[in-house]
Structures are given as C-alpha cells and as structure tokens.
Design a binder for these strands. Structure first.
Lengths: 194, 194
DNA sequence: AATCGATTGTACTATTGAGTCCATTCCGGA
DNA sequence: TCCGGAATGGACTCAATAGTACAATCGATT
C-alpha cells in the first residue's frame, strides 16, 4: 500500500513544504508551491495526504519538532557537568541564531493548533520530552552534588524551558539573541547558586 | 478629513476585528466578518484602511499591544518592594490565564511581521517599553538595598521578559499556566538572592 | 438653501487556491 | 506475459474573499 518509491515521494513533498515554509512563511505557501518545488503534482499530494493541506502541515510540524531535539544532541542528553550545560547552552543559542527570525514550528502552531488536535499533540510531546531531559540533567547534577538536593527539579526545568521559549520568541521578533542568552545564563546562574 | 463620527466608525471596525481575531484566530477571520460584526460595509472599511487587510491588522496589533501594558498597571510602574513585585507577578499570570490559549498578538506577529515593517515596530516597541519598566523596577530595588547593586539590571530584565514570553507561549500551547508561574518565581527568587 | 467633502451601503469583479477527476504509466508478483 | 494496485500529471471545478466602483446620504459651513 506504500512502495519504496511512494515513500520517497511522500518524503520529498514534506521536505519541500518544510523548506518553503521556512523560507516564506506558512500563510503564503500554497500547495502548488509545494508541488512545484517537490517536482510532483496535485495528484500525488492528495494521494499521500488525503486530508489535504492540514494533514501536510501536521507532518511538517512533526518533522520540525523532531529536528529541534536532534539539534541539541548530544549535549541535551548528557547534562552531567557545568561544562556540559554550557556547551548545551551554546548549542541552543547557535541553533536558533541560525534559524534567524523564522520560526516554522511556532508559525505552524499558531496557524493550525486551534483546529487540529494532532498538531497540539506534536507541540506538547516536544515540550514534554525537552523538559524531561532538562529535568534529568538537573537531577544528575543534584546526584553528584553540584546542585543543592532541595531544589525542585520539575519547577526549575519548567523555568528553563520557559526561558528558552521566550528567548526564542524575542529572537524571532527582534533578530537579536541577546534575550535568549541572558535568559539561559540567568537560569544557569540560579542553578549554580543552588 | 476625519470627523468625530468617522473616528468612531473606524474604532468600531478595529474593535470588531480585534474581537473576531481573539475568538476565532487571525487566519480565518475575513473582512466580511469584521464588517458584519461592526455593522459596517466594505466601503467604510476601505475608506478608513485604504491599504486593506494588512493595514487593519497592524491597527489591531497596536491596540492589543497597548492593552498588554495597560493590563499590568498599576503594578508594573511601581515595583518598589517585594510585595509589589509579587502583586505584579500575580497580575501577569492572571491576565494571560484569562486570555487562555489564544494569543492574538502572537498570532498577528507570526502572520504579518515578515511582510510589514510597521508590525515589527509595534512588537519591538512593546518589548522595549515592557523591559524598560522592569529594569527601572530592578534599579529601584537596588537603590533601596533589596537587590545587590552589582547585578546587571539590563541583563536581568532581559531574562525576566524572556521568562514571561516563554511562559505565555507554553500557556498557549498547553493551556496550563504552570510554566509561566514557575518561570516568574524562578526569576524573583534569583533577584531576591542577589 | 446651497455646497462640498466625508461617510455609507451594496453590487460587482477578478483572482486565487484547495480539492477533484481521470487517463496514463509504472512495477512487482503469478 | 499479464494483471492489479500503486504512482503520476494535469486539467478542471468551485467556493471564498480581497478589493473596486459608484451612487446615495449626511452634516458642517457659508
């Protein structure tokens, strides 16, 4: 029901849509743009995404969400020393700096979240996994005595996630990574003081 | 060139557009929806917003931006004691909780910022004023000895703004204000420790 | 009252873009 | 080789909506 060739075409469509959206914004990208860029036609697009545009956008959102976590590895998974935390911090800043003032995922969310529970699920799952990994990092630092054991790791990881999201949001709006850097440093300072 | 009656009509249009967008999302609101709700016609709309949809959206964004700061008063302007900071914190949480999972301003920004410098300016000006008021609050707390003088007020206010923005973003995505609260508490803790 | 610009209502146009249809081609297995 | 489902391409439909045209009305000023 889905040959190797078909899977490849489907992937080309998602890639093309993701690229178009990153470059020009979700609101202005049409299905024809996606077809042109992927070298396919409406036939294929609706063959692989029977629900049409919405279904394609969810697939793109999922792909972008996966990339977010991938781009933070291996640092995010190994937060066992202050130097590892700093490397992770730099990786996050660098990743979003490169992305510039476009936030494909953010734009997708504000556009489709309200209508499609599937898209909401993508967002929540991303946040959940991301925060969980930060939380594990904090617990490891507590285990080896670098952070006071009394600190609420869950609350602290919530704050770290919020700091990143906000820093990124401001980066999108202003083009400057200064807030993101200040916010992360502020969090690391407070963790180190604990 | 703009009578009292005309100004009132123009305002009705902006109000109607803002309400529709808050309730249903910017992507799905049409100019006819706005006309119907404001009791006007296309004629008026294009009379008062000759550039059409874009110009109207910028006006709505400006209005929403103004509300953001208004809703934090009088607390934001009087951050001279820890109890004032806590009241402000509660006002921010309450304000965004009420707004729920809709972020009219955020949605407007992701939809129109790329194309219209005017919209970018609205965002930046809001952030600038907001952060400046927080910074003043920190400086006041330093002046009366509640915060260590060595703290970099500009960096700290950047972090506070990012914490709020991120907390709000996560509130939009998940419906829970937990991250916003944790992030603000985390910031206040760190300020108090300084 | 006469005038003139501001204001208002509505019918109309032009475009765009999502989604459909269907004929054709490809390709792996019997 | 033949078959059937998967894959492909593109022309076509149809609805929605931004924006225009224009005639009618208001209301302040003289």
């Amino acid at each position: 029901m889905l040959t190797k060739k078909g899977a490849a075409t489907r992937q080309r469509i998602v890639d093309a849509a993701a690229a178009e959206i990153r470059e020009r914004g979700v609101a202005v990208v049409t299905l024809e743009d996606v077809c042109r860029r992927s070298g396919t036609g409406k036939g294929q697009l609706f063959h692989y995404f029977p629900e049409g545009r919405e279904e394609l956008l969810v697939a793109v959102a999922q792909r972008e969400a996966d990339r977010v976590l991938e781009d933070q590895q291996p640092y995010l998974g190994e937060l066992t020393s202050w130097s590892a935390w700093r490397q992770w911090r730099d990786a996050v800043v660098e990743r979003y700096r490169r992305q510039g003032t476009n936030c494909p995922l953010g734009a997708l969310i504000t556009e489709i979240d309200r209508h499609t529970p599937a898209a909401q699920a993508v967002t929540r799952e991303l946040l959940r996994q991301w925060q969980r990994q930060v939380e594990v990092g904090i617990e490891q630092m507590q285990a080896n005595g670098h952070i006071r054991a009394g600190l609420d790791a869950k609350a602290a990881s919530s704050a770290v996630l919020a700091a990143i999201q906000g820093g990124v949001a401001i980066l999108m709006a202003t083009g400057s990574s200064q807030h993101l850097e200040s916010a992360l440093d502020f969090c690391l300072d407070h963790l180190a003081a604990a």
